[in-house]
Design a protein around this nucleic acid. Structure first.
Lengths: 231, 231
DNA sequence: CGCGAGCTTGACGTTGTTCAACTAGAGTGG
DNA sequence: CCACTCTAGTTGAACAACGTCAAGCTCGCG
């Protein structure tokens, strides 16, 4: 992770992301003034569960995995963070600690925006707040979906679901699967690495997927969907 | 569930709840105009997972259980909704369906507020939006906690946690435990009713709790906390 | 060439669910 | 007032799902 100077032309991004559109020029200036741009290297932590946070992160570029940490290096992967998404917003409004960790799986260009700036803008600008609430709502819905899967599906359904989720990202990012180890995959489904391996093999045998080196190709999309639903 | 006329003096509540404090007189009027007051009877559904929602609910009075529905009547109880809390806000900003169910465990006086009114106020009034975001954040944090418990703790820890959670509400509401069946309790910990019964007995045997008729008294608070932490 | 990390496989154990049977109280109708 | 049914609670035994362990394998890298 290294800070990036505003002068390094190639890295300067205007605050053009859709979610900043509703800001007034002064508000843009405020955000711009209270942000730092940082490059996280593959493997770096963007956020660490439980750590104090005086800023929120906004991903310009790259991919990261958001996960919950348990004891004994048991993690649960919630989602893959893509460009245009916030990380650690909750720290702004609530606890001022991150309630999840996230780690870069490719190099990531990220804005760190100071909490105070975000709070100010939200209070001034209803439209921006509205946008933020919508994002929260979406996150909330996703958490509910996660809970539903964990509670009511078993291994097969959960892995199928994880595969389908990651496969969706393949369009924008053809190498997603190569970026993830078996343990990473297992952690998306909240199962052990060994079970993950066994299930992948059995899915391959049954013609649902193909395992090439590190890549995974979904062959029978609807079949997997079926499994994911049935549990 | 029955609607209540504004003229029924005893049921008229001003919008005095803390979260409405930041509204301007016109905004208060807007909310007042687009709300209905309803009495839900014990056992009525305040919200039904998946159902369309054109309104959010605001609980004035009474208790309800918020839960996620799975197939085969397997539910997971998320929390007990108390006076002053919103239900179904996510429907306002996001999907326009409820992503959880909730059922009254005592009679509940509730405001139904039209989505449009809330959206308008949020967009106009940054402070109100800010407040709402904070509530969301809190809900989010709670969901993370729920996930953490489900993922990393086993039966004993989960039930201990559920007992402690409900016990906290006993102050404001001495009869909470009587309002909940063993299945309800089990659903808070996401275990089977049978396991719940067995665990309660064993906790009683070990002097952590006392089982009286339908009430449960926590005797060894710190012991339960220990169990809840250890898993 | 050797070493270590990630992957793979099968045997075994644990956790917690399911099933079936039994009990106790609460209502209901004759 | 007594059978009756119905629901909630209780118990133990059988079973399934899944994790853990131990061992071997492969491939990239020093």
């Amino acid at each position: 992770m290294r800070p990036i100077l505003e002068s390094e032309q190639e890295f300067i991004c205007n605050i053009q992301a859709p979610c900043f559109q509703s800001l007034s020029p002064e508000e843009v200036e405020l955000v711009r003034a209270s942000k730092t741009q940082v490059l996280f290297r593959k493997g770096d932590h963007l956020s660490k569960q439980g750590a104090f946070a005086s800023y929120a992160l906004f991903v310009i570029n790259g991919l990261a995995v958001q996960y919950i940490e348990g004891e004994h290096s048991k993690n649960y992967n919630l989602r893959i963070i893509q460009p245009g998404e916030f990380v650690g917003l909750s720290a702004v409004f609530n606890k001022n600690t991150f309630n999840y960790s996230s780690v870069a799986i490719t190099d990531c260009q990220v804005y760190l925006v100071e909490k105070a700036a975000i709070v100010t803008v939200v209070q001034q600008n209803g439209a921006f707040g509205f946008n933020l609430i919508k994002r929260y709502c979406e996150q909330n819905s996703n958490l509910f979906d996660n809970l539903r899967h964990l509670l009511f599906k078993q291994m097969h359904g959960r892995i199928a679901n994880a595969l389908l989720y990651i496969d969706e990202l393949k369009g924008a990012n053809p190498s997603v699967f190569q970026l993830l180890s078996r343990k990473d995959l297992a952690d998306f489904a909240a199962i052990s690495t060994e079970s993950c391996v066994k299930l992948l093999k059995s899915f391959e045998k049954d013609g649902f997927i193909e395992l090439l080196e590190k890549d995974i190709v979904v062959i029978n999309h609807s079949g997997l969907t079926e499994i994911s639903k049935k549990g």
